[in-house]
Each structure stands twice: as structure tokens, then as C-alpha cells.
Design a protein around this nucleic acid. Structure first.
Length: 954
RNA sequence: GCCCCGGUAGCCCAACUGGCAGAACGGCAACGGAUUCAAAACCCGUACAGUGUGGGUUCGAAUCCCACCCGGGGCACCA
């Protein structure tokens, strides 16, 4: 970092606010806060019981960090500083504030470090947490340290496992629209009020068979599913962790489809509520939109098509175009494929449909193999050319009675809808491309509105529109001809329902959440299997299931391209841990069990941490209901309840935020929490970027050592290029908060970061610009304390009118800005007031005190010091935030602009409460207006008293 | 390709529901002065942009509408 000109001077006044003095002050007040437990937040009940304000309370949260070994850079704490300022502000406004920070500590980097060095992930993680704690403490964050949790703490993850068990032991009851205990479902099966799938009595089913049945209902279930297998990482991944181009978000390895038995969370059951409850939240629209898109709700219909030996059910959003369905397509993996394939090609099967195979079975086999070998990347790249083969089977179009061929093609995805479609090539772009490629008939059933005519043979692409009328769509029983798309949908859906071959339905893009990972450093599942293979949840008393010690931390990783490889869990290699004798307390006594060896994804710990902040050492409950209700319960302002303010990066829009909402809703359904949503107000802070300098090879050079000469940049004498980039180790442009604090102090960092610009936008770090922030604090110090003698400079005189106005205006502005999270403008207003006071001969105490209090959330250490020098006992953390007196907010004269036809022609001074009529009179009489009117008459006069009059000439 | 968000002085940024033909307040950098043996710091002062481009609505547009350009983000064969 460049040498600070401010701090470097040798013989400066003894009481100048410089880095050294700032450090002294900061350390002293941090000690004070710690020893006086200033920021410990009371709970209504339990171990942290204390005096709480019933009406005014505020739960403020940051997205907790995953502590990396390299520590923080100055870009990281921006959000933490913002929440801290807001929290301090709220305290001064009489709120009981809960603000703490925990650590998301299970995760891949520590495990990779362990594989590389042999050091236990817990050791490296805890060391990293210590570094973070120290760095963050240095910033003077007003956290309640008692509530800080770590997700790797067995006392924490016992509850993560406990919640898993609640989810496992629940099912989603569509009739009630919520989760219910699985025991209630078992009762229904046992009593026969709900039939088993194959009609046998519940008692006749084996334990494993019952597992299978219940697995179709449980909100957490293990099933053989098509998953994202990432050989390069040696683990499977959730959809949300795979990028659009089919690679792992972490590590950027190729991802393949693979069928594996994995744990899933039935988040799809909550699709509807996850969308509709967004309306109750105060979140950025962009994030809500992303969640809505990710969940992807679409309304349509399920339609059955008869096929030799069965039926194919499709989902379509365009049932109105059913008369135009000229063929069908199944996903290659569709389970029906094998059963519908005939022994030989039907007479007259065109050559291109056969895929060069002698029989349909061979064609299907070959195509399936090819599709399975494709990674999502390939699939993506091939999206333009449609491939597929004919299955040899024909289905019957239920409205036209026509026989239509059934294909398999990889443009139909198994994971969406039913994995089968009716193809309407005339009105779907993809079906059109496929039909053209395979010479399939195209029938127009929606009259084109773009003048292209009704003969698809002349078209270049499908006609897709909702604002159009149906044609060629009638049979003996139903006619859609002449109906608009919307009416036609309703009509045909009704007809299908009447015939019992279809129904209106809603489909979601969202898939169930793949919840197991083949990793070491994660929460083990509290699940064991008996010798028959039946699944058992461990009783609560056996929690936590601790992460066992192992010899070797590494998952088995493979060649990144090896799609045929299969995962192997690190925990499975530890026989002593895997095979155990347990008495599950189910009356069966001690038996031999095998443990589940997958671990949970690192999202698990962050799905509920807000609840543990509320009641961090409750040994009986996840969270005491009274404490949860107090901090998170619904109120008039937050209808769904939840944390009052949650600040973090936008990158978690669909991962953490969706998962956490889902868990919270399950807990709500089961009655453990009173809030429907975990986070009421969400705010995304922008990133702090930094200049990156590269040498002629393109490698980054240490940014701190670059010199600027005449607009060009040099490192060690050689010219380098400059660009904007993220701040980080790899780009050699990191600035650590430690070095910054040593050179300027924590208060300067806080003020600088918040004054850079709006919290939500990205902005570039500029070390040179920091001088402005420390000068501000220096001037503030000087306004109160004599630099030479250390004596107090304030006087007891009443402020003059201009000073009183400046003070009250600043205070009012800061109050409003901070409440609206506009910290940059709040700082500007504080600087304006400070500059005003700087110009005075004598600084009146009342103004100085108001300024000190108003600045306190931003530069708390300096403010505490000045407050105490001003003669106050103790901390100002709970001193009331200054209130503006409205009398000083209005000027006794304002400038009124007189416009003629929108152009300013004159200005007059008027009283702020002047009436429209009087102002109009005055304005018309002004010389400027008269000159501009130049004798013309007046058509209208627009009066916006007291600031503007606009005269419109005739 | 589709969907969001944003483009104001050299730079970062302000401007409430459209209201000073013309952009504050603030900060950095620049310039001048004062101070100093000299410099730094401190203090005082100065200059610099007509709001990405082109249309439109309006008495009046940075603010509303349309098209385009640039930058950032999300989604991407989802039937």
C-alpha cells in the first residue's frame, strides 16, 4: 500500500487524530464494549433472558462467511459494516437489536486442503475462523459474541441432523397444503383408509417394501435418480450447483447424467408456496424474479395417448393445439420405451427414422447409449440439430384418432413434466425443427396472424402465438375452431377431463433437491440400515452423529471426463464407524446396523442458522418458541415474519435463499416456528472491485507496487496495463483490513467503504481516495478537541440560526438515509455539517453533540471517545439518536423560480407558506415574466408553491 | 436468442412523486492562494460536465414512452 501522507508526518501536534491515536481509541472502546457486554442482546426467555422491548426489536443478519485460509480483504466486510451501522442506528432509536455473525464451516476447500496436506479439516477451518474473528473484531462490529455459531460444532449440527429427521419423517399433504408427520400417513395405510400401490395390506409388506412406499411421500427420501455426477470432484451435485453450460460451479469440471441412489429433498412440493409467498417479502425484484424463473411454474394439462400395450402421458402448456399433434417424443431414458418397442420395423418405416439399425430395439439401444454418453456441454452445443430415432411404436391422437409415430429424442428431458411430449410442429419451434429433419407431417391449427398463410409447407419456422384463433380443430364431439387460444385451452381441457384422459395441471421447472454428497467434511446423515436393508432414522438421543476420524479424507476422484465412473464415499472406507451395534429403542434390542455414508451438502448448515442465532445454546429445543416468536414472528410490518434485515451477495439468489426458505416452511408446517419465511427484508450489497495490473505476458503484478506516471502505469520500471477486476489473492490486488487499519484506523475504513457509493452497486477500491474519509474524521476531532493541547474546544453558546439549521437538516437527512440504507448520502450530509462547524470560530456544544451522536453508527470508536470527552459517562451505544426540530428544517425564505413556457425568466424570494394565488400574482408581476410575455396573453399558470411558477402564454 | 439492472464532470457519486435551459452536496484528482527556510499536513479559493445515442410525450424530462449503442447479471431444447 502507498505510504500514508496523513499518518507519516513526524512532528505533528500531540493530539492529532492519526492512525496511532485512532488505534488507541479503537482498542480502548472495543475493550469497553467487550467488558461491559454492551452488545449482548437479551431474549424473552431462556439462558439469554433479559429485558426486551416488546414493541421495538430488530433482528439484523449478514450472510455468514465461509472462512477461507487467506483471510479477509477489504471488499469482504462491506456488508458487515453496513449491517453494523444499521444495527447501531436502531439501538440509538430504542430498538432491541439482535446482531451476530457465525461461520459456515463445512465445505470443500478445507477438505481439499486436508487431502493435500493431511491436516484435519477441523484444524484448518478453526484456524481460519480465528483469523476472521480477529480481523472482524478489529472493525468494531457490534455483535453479540454469545450467539455466534459454527456449523461444524457438533452442538450445532446435532440440530441440523434433527431438522433432517423432521423432514425425513414428514410428507406433504396436498389436501392440507403442508407437511404432516409421516406417522399419520402410516396410520392411514395401516388402517386401510389409504390403499397401498399394489393393493396389498400394509401388514403384508416387508420393511423394505414399506420403505419404498413411504419413500414416495417423505420430504427427504433416498431414491435411484438421474443425477449430476461430477467425476472431477468425485461427488454428485444439485441442479443449482451446475452452470448453464453443464459444468460444476465449483472447479468448473464437466458434469454427466448418471443414475444413482441418492438422498433427495422434495422441494418441488413447495413450488407453489415458494412462488406465492415471495409476494409477502421485501426483497429486490431481481432476486424474486430469479426465484420465480428457477421454480418455473407453468399451467397446462396432462393428456393420455393410447399406445399398444399401454398409454403415454404427456404434459403440455398448449392443450389447445392437440389437433396439431402429429407425432410424440419420449426422453431416451423414459421407462416406457422398452415396453413399446416392437420386434421389427413397421412396414414402410422411412430409412432416416431407423438410425441405421436393423430393429427398433437396436436403434433405441444405440441412441440411448449415445445420449447417455453426452455431457450437458455436448448436449448444449448440439441443441440446434435435432437427433432421435423412431421407436417403431404408434400412439393414437385422442382427438383426431390418428395414428402417430413415437420417437425418442434427447431434446425431450426426462426431468421435466412426464418426460414425454406431444409434438405440435406447426406451433413449437423445437418440434418444427425435428419434424423438418425427419420429414414428419406438420398441421396448422392456429391461424397465423403474420400473413404467412395456413400451409406449413411454405413456413420457415413454427408459428407461436397466444393472441390468435384456432382452426382445423374439430371432431364429432368437440370443436375449437374460431376460439382464441385461452378459450380453446379451457374447452379442450374440459373435454379431456370429461373423457377421463386428461386434466388441467401445473408443472414446475424446479426439481427435487439432491441432498447427498460423497464427501468427508459434511454432516453425516442420522440414518442407518439394518441387515435386511431397511432404513431406520436414529432416535433423537443418538444425535449428533459426529463426523468420524478417518485416515484418508479424499473422496475418490476420477478423470474429469470419465462419465462411467461411480462415486465412493470417504466415510464408507471406515468400517469401524460404518458397521455398528445399536439399540434404536424400537423394541428390537441391540442389532447390527450399517450407517449411511453420504454426507449433507454444505448448504445444510446455512438453511436454518438464523434460528440458532435466536437461541444459541438451547439444549432442549431447536429454538424456544417464545424467542422465535419475539425475534421472527409475523408483525404488521412483516406479514410472513422472519429476520428484519438480511444483507448479502446476490450470488445466493437461488441456492441458499431457496433452500433456507424451504426448510423454514417445513418447520413452520410442523409447528416449530411461527414465521412462514426466514428473511423478511433482503438487500444485496455490491462488490468492491479493484484495479488489476498485468505485465506484457498478461500476468497480474502486485497492484500496491505499481506507479503511475502521466496516465501510464509501471511496475519495476516496465509498463503494465490496468483493468477492473475482483479483489483477490490471485490478481495480486488484495488490500487486507489489517494493513488498512494499521495505517488509517477502523473508523476510517468504515466511513470510506460506506461513502464510496450506494451499497447495492459495485464500485472500485481507490486507496488514494481514502484520504477524504480520514480528513473528515480529523476535522470532526478538531472541531471538538484542540490538537495541540487536547483541551475541549466546544463552547456552551447557543448556535446561530445557520448552524442550528445545518445541524437539524443533517440530523434529519441522516435519519432518513440510514433508515433507507443510503449510507453514502448519509455520510455526505455528515460531512456537510462538519464542514459547516469547521468554519465557525467557536463550535457550540449542542451542534457538536448532535454530530457526534449522528456519526456514531459510522465511526463508533471516535464518537465514543468524543462523547466521553464531552463529559458523558459510559457508552453512547444506547443514547438516543438526535431528533431534528422541524422548526429548523424550514427556511424563512425560499427562492421561487418564475418560468415562462418552461424557461426560467426570473427569480423571487418568497415565504415558504405562500399561497398559490399570492404567488401567481407576484410571479405575473415580475419584470422577467413581463419581458418574456412581451404583451402576449396568459393561457395557464402552473403554480407549485413555493418553489416554482410556470406561465404558459396564449 | 430471451429476461432483468445500469449508463450524469478526469474519477467515485447526488438530485423526493417530471419542476431553477439546466445538475447539489460530498469525496478523490487538478489548478491557484495562504502557511513554511523548504516540503508534507492543515486552511482559503478556482475551474471542469448539459445527464450513452436518436426520436417522442409535456408548459417543463436525467427523471415518462419507443428504438438503438455500451456495461453488468440471470436463464437457455423446461414442452
Amino acid at each position: 500500500m502507498t505510504q500514508s501522507t496523513v499518518a507519516a508526518a513526524g512532528d505533528e501536534p500531540a493530539y492529532r487524530y492519526n492512525a496511532k491515536l485512532a488505534s488507541d481509541i479503537e482498542e480502548r472502546w472495543q475493550d469497553y464494549w467487550r467488558t461491559h457486554a454492551t452488545f449482548e442482546a437479551p431474549n424473552p426467555v431462556g439462558s439469554l433472558k433479559g429485558e426486551v422491548s416488546e414493541a421495538k426489536h430488530s433482528f439484523i443478519m449478514d450472510m455468514f462467511p465461509y472462512p477461507s485460509g487467506s483471510g479477509l480483504h477489504v471488499g469482504h466486510p462491506l456488508g458487515y459494516i453496513a449491517t453494523d451501522v444499521y444495527g447501531r442506528f436502531q439501538r440509538m432509536n430504542g430498538y432491541t437489536v439482535l446482531h451476530t455473525l457465525g461461520y459456515d464451516a463445512f465445505g470443500l476447500p478445507a477438505e481439499q486442503h486436508a487431502v493435500a496436506t493431511g491436516e484435519h479439516p477441523r484444524a484448518s477451518t478453526e484456524r481460519a475462523i480465528e483469523i476472521y474473528r480477529r480481523q472482524l473484531n478489529r472493525l468494531g462490529l457490534a455483535h453479540d459474541p454469545r450467539r455466534s455459531i459454527e456449523t461444524i460444532d457438533p452442538e450445532y449440527y446435532r440440530w441440523t441432523q434433527w431438522i433432517f429427521l423432521q423432514i425425513f419423517n414428514s410428507w406433504y399433504d396436498p389436501a392440507r397444503g403442508g407437511a404432516r408427520p409421516i406417522s399419520e400417513l402410516i396410520e392411514q395405510f395401516a388402517a386401510g383408509t389409504r390403499p397401498t400401490p399394489d393393493g396389498r395390506a400394509w401388514a403384508e409388506l416387508s420393511a423394505v417394501e414399506r420403505d419404498e412406499v413411504l419413500g414416495e411421500y417423505r420430504l427427504a427420501y433416498a431414491k435411484e435418480v438421474s443425477v449430476n455426477w461430477c467425476p472431477g470432484l468425485g461427488t454428485v451435485l444439485a441442479n443449482e450447483e451446475v452452470t448453464a453450460d453443464g459444468r460444476s460451479e465449483r472447479g468448473n469440471f464437466p458434469v454427466f447424467k448418471s443414475k444413482l441412489r441418492q438422498w433427495m429433498m422434495r422441494i418441488t412440493a413447495y413450488g407453489d408456496r415458494l412462488i406465492s409467498d415471495l409476494d409477502l417479502l421485501d426483497w429486490p425484484e431481481a432476486i424474486k424474479l430469479q426465484q420465480r424463473n428457477w421454480i418455473g411454474r407453468s399451467e397446462g394439462a396432462r393428456v393420455e395417448f393410447a399406445v399398444e400395450g399401454g398409454k403415454i402421458t404427456v404434459f403440455t402448456t398448449r392443450p389447445d393445439t392437440l389437433f396439431g399433434a402429429t407425432y410424440m417424443v419420449l426422453a431416451p431414458e423414459h421407462e416406457l420405451v422398452t415396453s413399446i418397442v416392437p420386434a421389427a420395423w413397421p412396414e414402410g418405416t422411412p430409412e432416416p427414422w431407423r438410425g441405421g439399425a436393423a430393429t427398433p430395439a437396436e436403434a433405441v439401444e444405440a441412441y440411448r447409449a449415445m445420449a447417455a454418453a453426452k455431457s450437458d456441454v455436448d448436449r448444449q452445443m448440439d441443441a440446434k440439430t435435432k437427433t432421435g430415432v423412431f421407436t417403431g411404436a404408434y400412439a393414437v391422437n385422442p382427438v383426431s384418432g390418428e395414428s402417430i409415430p413415437v420417437f425418442i429424442a434427447d431434446y425431450v428431458l426426462m426431468g421435466y413434466g412426464t418426460g414425454a411430449i406431444m409434438a405440435v410442429p406447426a406451433h413449437d419451434l423445437r418440434d418444427f425443427a425435428f419434424a423438418r429433419a425427419f420429414g414428419l407431417p406438420i398441421r396448422c391449427v392456429v391461424k397465423p396472424t403474420d400473413g404467412r398463410g395456413e400451409d406449413p409447407a411454405s413456413w420457415d419456422e413454427a408459428f407461436v402465438a397466444y393472441d390468435a384463433v384456432l382452426v382445423n380443430s374439430a371432431n364429432a364431439e368437440v370443436s375449437l375452431d374460431g376460439l382464441g387460444v385461452v378459450e380453446a385451452k379451457a374447452a379442450i381441457t374440459k373435454w379431456l377431463e370429461g373423457k377421463g384422459i386428461g386434466e388441467g395441471t401445473v408443472n414446475y421447472r424446479l426439481r427435487d433437491w439432491l441432498f447427498s454428497r460423497q464427501r468427508y467434511w459434511g454432516e453425516p446423515f442420522p440414518i442407518v440400515y439394518d441387515e435386511d436393508g431397511a432404513m431406520h432414522a436414529l432416535p433423537e438421543s443418538m444425535l449428533p452423529v459426529e463426523v468420524p476420524e478417518v485416515e484418508d479424507y479424499s473422496p475418490r476422484t476420477f478423470d474429469a471426463q470419465d462419465a462411467a465412473s461411480e462415486p465412493e464415499t470417504p466415510l464408507s472406507r471406515n468400517a469401524d464407524w460404518v458397521d455398528v451395534d445399536l439399540d434404536l429403542g424400537d423394541g428390537r434390542g441391540v442389532r447390527r446396523y450399517r450407517r449411511e455414508t453420504n454426507t449433507m451438502p454444505n448448504w445444510a448448515g446455512s438453511c436454518w442458522y438464523e434460528l440458532r442465532y435466536v437461541d444459541p445454546d438451547n439444549a432442549v429445543d431447536l429454538v424456544d418458541p417464545a424467542n422465535e416468536r419475539y425475534w421472527m414472528g409475523p408483525t404488521a410490518h412483516k406479514r410472513a415474519g422472519g429476520v428484519d434485515l438480511y444483507i448479502g451477495g446476490a450470488e445466493h439468489a437461488v441456492l441458499h435463499l431457496l433452500y433456507a426458505r424451504f426448510w423454514h416452511k417445513v418447520l413452520f408446517d410442523l409447528g416449530y416456528v411461527s414465521s412462514k419465511e426466514p428473511f423478511h427484508k433482503l438487500f444485496n450489497q455490491g462488490m468492491i472491485t479493484a484495479d488489476v495490473y498485468r505485465d506484457d505476458r498478461g500476468f497480474p503484478v502486485p497492484a500496491g507496487e505499481v506507479e503511475e506516471r502521466d496516465g501510464a502505469y509501471f511496475w519495476q520500471g516496465a509498463a503494465v496495463t490496468r483493468e477492473a477486476g475482483k479483489m483477490g489473492k490471485s490478481l495480486k490486488n488484495s488490500v487486507s483490513p489489517d494493513e488498512f487499519c494499521a495505517e488509517y484506523g477502523a473508523d476510517t475504513l468504515r466511513v470510506y467503504e460506506l461513502s464510496m457509493g450506494p451499497l447495492e452497486v459495485s464500485k472500485p477500491w481507490d486507496t488514494k481516495a481514502v484520504a477524504g474519509s480520514i480528513r473528515f474524521l480529523q476535522r470532526l476531532w478538531r472541531n471538538v478537541v484542540d490538537e495541540e493541547t487536547g483541551a475541549l474546544r466546544v463552547v456552551e453558546d447557543e448556535p446561530d440560526l445557520a448552524t442550528a439549521r445545518a445541524t437539524h437538516q443533517a440530523v434529519a437527512g441522516v435519519q432518513e438515509d440510514v433508515a433507507g440504507l443510503r449510507f453514502n448520502t448519509a455520510v455526505a450530509k455528515l460531512i456537510v455539517l462538519n464542514n459547516h462547524l469547521t468554519k465557525l470560530e467557536r463550535v457550540p456544544r449542542s451542534s457538536a453533540e448532535a454530530l457526534v451522536l449522528a456519526v456514531a453508527p459510522f465511526a463508533p470508536h471516535l464518537a465514543e471517545e468524543l462523547w466521553s470527552r464531552l463529559g458523558h459517562e459510559g457508552s453512547l451505544a444506547y443514547a438516543p439518536f438526535p431528533q431534528a426540530d422541524p422548526r429548523f428544517l424550514v427556511a424563512d425564505e425560499v427562492t421561487c423560480v418564475i418560468q415562462v413556457q418552461g424557461k426560467v425568466r426570473d427569480k423571487i424570494q418568497v415565504a415558504p407558506d405562500i399561497t398559490d394565488e399570492a404567488l401567481k400574482e407576484l410571479a405575473l408581476a415580475t419584470e422577467g415574466a413581463q419581458r418574456a410575455l412581451d404583451g402576449r396573453g396568459v393561457r395557464t399558470v402552473i403554480v407549485r408553491a413555493p418553489k416554482l411558477v410556470n406561465i404558459v402564454p396564449a
